[in-house]
């Protein structure tokens, strides 16, 4: 084996670093959207590789739905302190109040759709011209069509039919005033790639990714954490189970999986054996219609 060979994770890392630096080189006011999940934690790790010993040429931005797992918020604050970068938090709660938005009703009332309003507001407030996100093309079929640099109009809308061709490693980040770009450095990573990278680089994650005891409610085959954000009915049966999270979104729209995997190796073994996709198993919000993700993206969602 020649020493001038890159294995697939080094390859993916190099590609992601290149995309980060293209954003830094092409835009005046970028931001990194940070959710506290494993993908955005990986993004932060890659940004360190891209810019250290310099500072990040962008702040981290967290759109706080108010429905977060407390473990994810604690982790976020600890990470930001450790790396010494700037964090901007904007609360969906405040947007709901100031814009008089109507919240979803029902048992698992989610603020997933409403966070788009807060995101567009924060883009306007700071004049961000590029937002870096941790979306992956393997997550969902609409995302499989997404560019690395995805141009959004002033309403944040994605127009899948008017996407710019993207050739070689050349990214066209030129935009008109009011438009912005969503940039996706880990587009070509799969869920398994992320976990293998986390393992190789020994990246720390919030505890909820590992097996723990939790009170859950079984709903249409999915396990939803019992929290103050869920409206329990008297007939609901709450049980205590050994679970972990494959994705970390809001407590209202992320489901847990039963698991005893308490370390990265066990998780990787489980993912290789799994027969259900990441979003299919754990996202309550994607099940609404075939084109649920496409529709949300058209409205400014990631």
């Amino acid at each position: 084996m020649s020493s001038y060979r890159l294995d697939y994770l080094d390859h993916l890392e190099s590609e992601a670093i290149h995309i980060f630096r293209e954003v830094a080189g092409q835009f005046e006011k970028p931001a990194l959207l940070f959710s506290g999940g494993k993908d955005s934690i990986t993004l932060v790790h890659l940004a360190l590789k891209a810019f250290r010993p310099g500072k990040f040429p962008f702040p981290l931005v967290h759109i706080d739905t108010g429905h977060n797992f407390p473990e994810a918020l604690d982790f976020r604050d600890k990470l930001v302190t450790e790396i010494g970068e700037k964090l901007i938090v904007r609360k969906v709660e405040d947007t709901i109040r100031s814009k008089n938005l109507t919240e979803q009703k029902g048992k698992f009332a989610s603020r997933n759709a409403l966070q788009t309003y807060t995101l567009l507001d924060v883009i306007e407030e700071f004049g961000f011209d590029a937002c870096i996100g941790g979306a992956r093309r393997d997550e969902e079929k609409a995302r499989a069509k997404e560019r690395i640099f995805s141009v959004r109009d002033e309403f944040g809308q994605w127009n899948p039919k008017l996407q710019r061709p993207e050739l070689w490693n050349t990214y066209n980040g030129k935009i008109h005033k009011g438009e912005n770009v969503r940039a996706f450095p880990i587009s070509n990573w799969t869920e398994l790639d992320i976990w293998n990278y986390i393992k190789r680089k020994n990246i720390e994650l919030p505890s909820i990714y590992f097996s723990h005891e939790r009170k859950v409610l079984e709903h249409e085959g999915q396990l939803v954490a019992v929290s103050e954000f869920i409206n329990l009915e008297p007939t609901d049966i709450v049980t205590s189970k050994k679970v972990r999270y494959r994705t970390v979104g809001d407590m209202t729209c992320t489901a847990a999986v039963e698991s005893t995997a308490s370390n990265i190796d066990d998780i990787i073994t489980e993912i290789i054996a799994t027969k259900t996709s990441e979003r299919g198993e754990t996202r309550i919000d994607d099940k609404v219609s075939e084109a649920a993700m496409e529709d949300r993206k058209k409205n400014g969602y990631f």
């Binding site: 093309r137 079929k141 499989a144 069509k145 039919k161 996407q163 587009s187």
Partner: peptide, 10 residues
Amino acid sequence: TIDVAYKYFS
């Protein structure tokens, strides 16, 4: 098929 779609397997 209108656009390029990216698919992954290993």
